[in-house]
Simulated scan of single mutants.
Amino acid sequence: MDFIIDVFEKENCNLEIYGPIDKNYENFFKNRIKKISNIHYKGEIYNKEKFELIASSKGLVLLSRSEGMPMVVLEALSLGTPCFLSVNSNMDDYIIDYETGVITELDLLIAKQKLQSFLGMINNNNSSEYCKVTCKEYFKWDAEKIISAYRKV
């Protein structure tokens, strides 16, 4: 979370942060962002409210130090929301191949430069359609093939 704050602090865009905050970090986090006018913590959201928010957002940011395959990124892409991700998100190929977002290193200078690329991208009206195509191409499940493969095992 500290890296995301560092990247977005003093930038000409707003960042809304959603989700739980570790209790050991909560006071530090809230005290730090209350001094930053473009970063706002909104709390936890779930279910329909989460999907409506993702679908209406200009972009999703996940600058994580370590991720498997983050479900929120798949949700965002399927809803047409471009993503700004760290290389550690394990979604590089999907994002790069279909130009559905921007991937950055966890280096502050590089991430600030990549943020500018991302901000330019989300103003492109086609990015939403590219996101939906990515999900359709990469993450479609052919139930018959899966069942057939399972039966062979």
Rank of each mutant, 00 (worst) to 15 (best):
L15N: 04
L109C: 09
F3T: 03
S128Y: 08
E75S: 11
K132C: 04
K30L: 15
S127P: 05
I54Y: 01
E67M: 06
G43E: 03
K140L: 08
N31T: 11
F29A: 02
I39R: 05
D142Q: 10
S78D: 10
D2I: 09
L85F: 04
N88A: 13
E144G: 01
K136Y: 06
Y130L: 15
N31L: 14
E99Y: 04
D97S: 11
L53N: 06
E44W: 11
M1V: 08
S148T: 10
G59E: 04
Y130N: 15
I110C: 06
Y138N: 10
C13H: 08
K10T: 07
Q116K: 15
I54F: 02
S57E: 06
S57F: 05
S86V: 00
L79Q: 07
S117M: 11
K34H: 12
L53W: 03
V87N: 14
I110S: 08
A55E: 14
A76N: 02
E67V: 02
L115N: 01
V102K: 04
S117Q: 13
A55S: 13
Y150M: 09
A149Q: 13
L108M: 06
N88V: 02
C131F: 04
K48T: 12
K132V: 05
L115P: 00
P20F: 15
T134N: 04
M91N: 03
V72L: 05
F51V: 07
I21Y: 07
M91Y: 03
E129L: 15
Q113A: 10
F84A: 05
K50G: 03
I122N: 00
V7C: 02
F118P: 00
N24L: 15
A143H: 10
F51M: 13
E26G: 08
K136T: 05
I33N: 01
Y41H: 08
F139G: 05
F28L: 15
M121K: 14
S64Q: 04
E26I: 10
S86A: 03
I54G: 00
R32A: 03
E52I: 09
T100N: 08
E99F: 03
G19E: 05
L63W: 00
V7E: 00
S64K: 03
A143S: 11
E137Q: 14
C83V: 15
G19D: 07
Q116H: 09
D6N: 15
E11H: 02
I36P: 00
V133I: 14
S128C: 11
D97L: 08
L77H: 01
Y46Q: 12
Y18P: 00
I17A: 02
S148P: 04
L108H: 05
F28N: 15
I5S: 01
G43A: 06
L53F: 06
